[in-house]
Amino acid sequence: MTDLAALAELIRADTATRGRAISKLGYFCAPFQPPAGPFSDRVIKVYRGAATEAQLTRLATAHDDYVRVLTECGVTLPETAFHLVDIDGTGTKTPVIVQEALPLDSLMRPRMLEDSREQTLAMMQAAGEVIARFWIAAEEVEARVGFHPSIRNFAIRDGKAVFFDTFPPLIHYTRDEMGKLLLQFSEKRLMRLIGPLMQTRVTGIQDEWYSPPETLVGLVGSACRLRPEYADSYLDWGRDFAQSHMPQWAEAALDGLDGPPQLPGYWTGFRKLLGLQGEPNV
């Protein structure tokens, strides 16, 4: 059982105690792994955003359900726990995910940048199999459920893809509710301030996550932007994979794979505005 008092103390601690952020790519938070102590084998993700007690309770329930559904749909996850933590002792609760740490050299995105063409294609296959397995199984899930299988959300262990992004929990929320959640828990104050003026576009960010063919196209697009010299190989892989592993969605996927897929301009603009790293995968 997680010691929430110790967890709150760790989150309040200085950078040297907490450990530096292991990624600055995140829209919602900058995960960190403590260099020592009881949480040294865990990654800590803190999601700051103003929310009522009822909203937080709903979020916690949705997260538990989402982890369960992901697992039931064949998605391998590291051990993941969701907590509502009183960080500063005022009684105000903050969502915190404590997750089993994965070796940094297993993270898919850095490996996609460094490995050979054949190795990157093998990783694409591993991630693609998770995408196909999830969506086929998710057809039996009654709730509205989504999946965000970005390259930066996978690790590769023993040739298999491990998915580690469970926030926001893409289950039980309507499209409009999820759009508001994207603003409510954005790490960047600027986004929370100006986002409501662009709510329609912010809400649209999620649409790919609820579309089986678009999640596959998104994976291929990220790979093409990371390694443009292999774009033709990734496109060929995506077309073959769509037809062999996701035939019920192949037609729509093929429409998106007639050339290197591009991110919507508004999302690229958001990332630059917020100062999120990610070149060239933007």
Results as ranks from 00 to 15, higher is better:
Ala127Met: 14
Gly128Val: 05
Gly128Trp: 07
Gly128Cys: 07
Glu129Leu: 13
Phe134Gly: 03
Trp135Val: 02
Ile136Tyr: 07
Ala138Tyr: 05
Ala143Val: 05
Arg144Phe: 00
Val145Arg: 05
Val145Ala: 02
Val145Cys: 07
Phe147Gly: 04
Phe147Ile: 07
Pro149Ala: 07
Pro149Phe: 06
Ser150Glu: 15
Ser150Phe: 03
Asn153Ala: 10
Phe154His: 08
Phe154Lys: 09
Phe154Trp: 08
Ile156Glu: 06
Arg157Lys: 10
Asp158Lys: 13
Ala161Gly: 05
Ala161Thr: 08
Phe163Trp: 10
Phe163Val: 02
Phe164Ile: 04
Asp165Ala: 06
Pro168Cys: 03
Leu170Gln: 07
Ile171Pro: 01
His172Cys: 01
His172Ala: 06
Tyr173Ala: 08
Thr174Ala: 05
Thr174Trp: 00
Asp176Ala: 14
Glu177Pro: 01
Glu177Asn: 02
Leu181Trp: 00
Leu183Lys: 07
Phe185Tyr: 15
Ser186Gly: 15
Ser186Thr: 10
Glu187Gln: 15
Arg192Asn: 11
Leu193Ser: 09
Ile194Thr: 14
Pro196Ile: 09
Pro196His: 14
Arg201Asn: 10
Gly204Ser: 14
Ile205Gly: 02
Ile205Tyr: 14
Ile205Asn: 06
Gln206Pro: 02
Gln206Arg: 07
Gln206Ser: 11
Trp209Ala: 11
Tyr210Asn: 01
Pro212Met: 07
Pro212Gly: 06
